[in-house]
């Protein structure tokens, strides 16, 4: 089977499980997991196709969440439009950050994004007039299409898996396009890609900004779904969690990351007694993956490949 078909089937399976699951707690948990999947798919593009890591993706999620909420609450912008606008703004922001940093070696982007994530976190905590500070921001209107309002867990659940499908589709389109193959070449051998006329720097900047776009859009949906956001949802550990999911799932495997993300973002809600041990679990997963399986769990699956 090809990886994209398998991934679409898996997403479809999740979608239809929405009709069967009765428990709103589980529906809510898997909806949040689905939003996380979107962020991780973006991060996967960056890890797998530019060979770089961002330690501040929670910051981009926060940007999407806060910008869209502020647009909708203070300026009465339509929720869909505000999510879209804030995602575009985050894309542009990442473009500005990525342009100088991606000219340098990988650790500069990692450190710079770590810094960006912290700066956004600090501002979210302290710009009390705009963000509500650590008490959080509330009062976002519910998402609706015409008269159809996403006012319960099931409706949002079904909707968010459709969005996951769209993003998975986008990811596979990118990966299997000329652009994606050029990125793959960059990751395999940068110098070779360069001599084949690939504009390595530009491609890296675009993929980084695109991954920030994924994150911001997920953040916007998160804000309007919960109707409440606070800085603690976007702290440094969240960024690390995203990296764990993307890396353990497989840096260039969307299917692997999909499974790992749903599992890893649901488990802390089920095994609540292990709460204090999560940093250790995450750390161990990262170490094992980095030392012994650089392609992550997804690297163990042999997909049928299309020869282009």
């Amino acid at each position: 089977m090809k990886e994209n078909v398998a991934s679409y089937l898996l997403i479809g399976l999740f979608f239809f499980s929405g009709f069967l699951i009765k428990n709103p707690f589980i529906l809510n948990m898997i909806s949040i997991a689905a939003l996380t999947v979107i962020v991780v798919m973006g991060l996967n593009l960056l890890l797998g196709y530019a060979g770089q890591v961002s330690l501040g993706h929670a910051g981009f999620v926060a940007l999407g969440a806060y910008l869209s909420s502020i647009l909708a609450i203070k300026f009465n912008v339509n929720p869909w439009l505000s999510i879209f606008v804030s995602s575009i703004l985050t894309f542009l922001f990442a473009l500005i950050i990525g342009y100088p940093t991606l000219k340098l070696k990988g650790h500069y982007l990692a450190m710079a994004t770590l810094a960006i994530g912290e700066i956004i976190y600090i501002f979210a905590n302290n710009l009390v007039n705009l963000t509500g500070g650590h008490q959080g921001l509330t009062g976002m209107p519910m998402l609706s299409i015409g008269n159809f309002v996403f006012n319960n867990e099931r409706k949002f659940f079904l909707f968010v898996w459709v969005v996951v499908f769209l993003f998975a589709f986008l990811s596979f389109r990118i990966v299997n396009s000329h652009f994606g193959r050029a990125l793959k070449a960059i990751h395999e051998k940068e110098l070779a890609a360069l001599s084949f006329g690939v504009n390595v720097h530009l491609y890296k900047v675009i993929i980084f900004s695109l991954s920030a776009f994924y994150a911001a859009l997920a953040g916007g949906l998160y804000a309007f779904y919960l109707g409440f956001i606070s800085p603690s949802s976007f702290d440094l550990l969240k960024s690390i969690n995203y990296v764990v999911m993307a890396f353990v799932g497989g840096i260039d495997s969307i299917f692997g990351s999909l499974i790992v993300t749903v599992v890893l973002s649901s488990l802390p809600n089920i095994l609540t007694f292990l709460q204090d041990y999560w940093p250790i679990v995450n750390g161990s997963l990262l170490i094992v993956a980095a030392m012994f399986m650089p392609k992550g769990l997804g690297g163990f699956i042999r997909w049928k490949r299309e020869i282009f």
Binding site: L47, G51, Q52, V53, L55, G106, H107, A110, I240, V243, F247, I251, P279, I280, N282, G283, S284, L285, L286, I287, A289, A290, M291, P294
Partner: peptide, 13 residues
């Protein structure tokens, strides 16, 4: 990339 990830994992532990 894998060494950045490795040292982050160690930091978390």
């Amino acid at each position: 990339l894998s060494l950045i990830i490795l040292t982050i994992g160690l930091a978390m532990i």
